[in-house]
């Protein structure tokens, strides 16, 4: 690499660097310092060593939240695969522009409307799903949101539903950037749709798959709104998620130091997973 190129590199990324220095670094450092402090919003930070981390690690809510959140994250691969299939199928059916819009709607309808519909579907006494189970299969429907074993799987199902449209738009943008001549060449070679999909589409779209996976994992670890809507803010060991616990500790229980410690533990976990994903990128993602 030459010096001039390096200089230009910094010039091109300078907007982000400036933003980082002005808007981001300060708050990050402050929040990091809070890990080791007790703070009452008014006075200076009081150094308390590792007490906050110790308290977090000894909280049963933390371990429940970690287990719930880690389990919840498993929805990501399902969502990525379904989104990609939807994006590919959309490309070959009539009326696709209306369908893309419909699939995107859950990302723009208000969260309360989304929650209301899911409750309408899954409520144990009048819910559409439980009624169907009862009438067709004579099965007593479960309490999807109140059964400790079903709460997280239900959240996963709703998240898959809510993310397919958004992700498949990202995939569509990726698919549209693939040169059509590559497909024509494959068609001339006599390749069928399935093998074209695996031999050409998947490798060429792998940068987008990588992007969607990494960002979805980050988001899934930060799930908050959906959990908050479906448990009315009253948390128990089976329905608490990490960010909801951070929110409670910091903004409702006044343990700001512990909230920061937990936030950074969460950041550390996501970081390790992302490092792993970046290693996988080198082997699995195909860049031209």
């Amino acid at each position: 690499m030459n010096k001039k190129e390096g200089l230009f590199g910094y010039i091109f990324i300078s907007p982000w660097i400036i933003g980082l220095l002005v808007f981001t670094i300060g708050p990050i450092v402050f929040s990091f310092a809070l890990i080791f402090s007790s703070w009452n919003l008014i006075g200076p930070l009081k150094f308390v060593g590792l007490e906050n981390i110790w308290n977090i690690l000894h909280s049963t809510f933390f371990w429940s939240a970690l287990r719930n959140t880690a389990f919840f994250t498993l929805y990501v691969p399902i969502s990525v695969i379904l989104s990609l299939i939807v994006a590919v199928l959309m490309n070959r059916i009539p009326g696709s522009s209306i369908f893309r819009l419909i699939y995107f709607l859950p990302s723009v309808t208000p969260a309360v409307a989304n929650a209301a519909v899911w409750i309408w579907l899954l409520q144990p006494s009048y819910g559409v799903v439980d009624n169907a189970l009862k009438n067709w299969f004579n099965i007593e429907g479960p309490g999807w949101f109140s059964d400790p074993n079903l709460y997280i799987p239900t959240l996963m199902m709703i998240s898959i539903w809510g993310s397919i449209g958004y992700n498949s738009i990202l995939f569509t943008a990726g698919l549209k950037s693939i040169d059509k001549s590559i497909y024509e060449a494959a068609y001339l070679d006599g390749s069928n749709s399935i093998s074209t999909f695996f031999r050409i589409t998947v490798p060429l779209i792998s940068p987008t798959i990588f992007f969607v996976t990494v960002t979805s994992v980050i988001w899934s670890f930060q799930v908050f709104d959906l959990a908050y809507m479906t448990n009315n803010g009253v948390t128990s060991y089976y329905n608490i998620t990490l960010v909801q616990y951070i929110y409670q500790l910091g903004f409702q229980y006044f343990h700001i130091g512990e909230a920061s410690a937990l936030a950074w533990i969460l950041t550390g976990i996501i970081f390790l997973i992302t490092l792993f994903e970046l290693q996988a990128e080198k082997k699995l993602v195909f860049y031209q």
Partner: peptide, 9 residues
């Protein structure tokens, strides 16, 4: 008095 899972929503 209905059960709490009935009261959902």
């Amino acid at each position: 008095n209905p059960s709490e899972s009935y009261m959902q929503g």
